[in-house]
């Protein structure tokens, strides 16, 4: 089973995406900001995909992405940034930091599952 890590400071967003992923048969780990997520990763969690919000307290998604890329075993893991319509600039910034792509909020469930299949081989 593929494990997906969700990072968002909005519990609503976590809940909505998690329910779609769980229903689709993915294992889901959540964190409410970059720092918490990073702690889980340095603690040994190795998700097959990370979906992270950009704008978060403690550690934003861009910094988080940069940090993840420094972690052994996480250098090649796909990372998708959760962005809003107006955050086009953040997408480029995220890619420069090592993100694979992005999702646009609010995320439609079939679109979400499609993107996961697109970026995670074997998903």
């Amino acid at each position: 089973m593929k494990t997906i890590m969700l990072v968002d400071d909005s519990a609503t967003m976590l809940m909505s995406i998690k329910s779609v992923l769980v229903k689709a048969g993915y294992g889901v780990e959540t964190a409410s900001h970059g720092k918490e997520a990073l702690t889980k990763i340095t603690g040994g969690l190795r998700p097959d995909l990370i979906i992270s919000d950009v704008n978060m307290p403690q550690m934003d998604g861009i910094t988080f992405t940069r940090e993840v890329r420094k972690t052994a075993g996480m250098r090649f893991t796909p990372i998708l940034m959760l962005t809003t319509e107006s955050e086009a600039g953040k997408r480029a910034e995220g890619k420069a930091a090592g993100a694979t792509g992005w999702l646009v909020k609010p995320v439609q469930s079939d679109q979400l599952l499609g993107v996961i299949k697109q970026v995670v081989p074997g998903a």
Binding site: R75, F76, I79, G98, A99, T100, P121
Partner: peptide, 14 residues
């Protein structure tokens, strides 16, 4: 590109 989690061949399959 691998360091951004990309796998071009996987993308191209699609």
């Amino acid at each position: 590109c691998y360091f951004r989690g990309e796998d071009p061949l996987h993308l191209l399959r699609q």
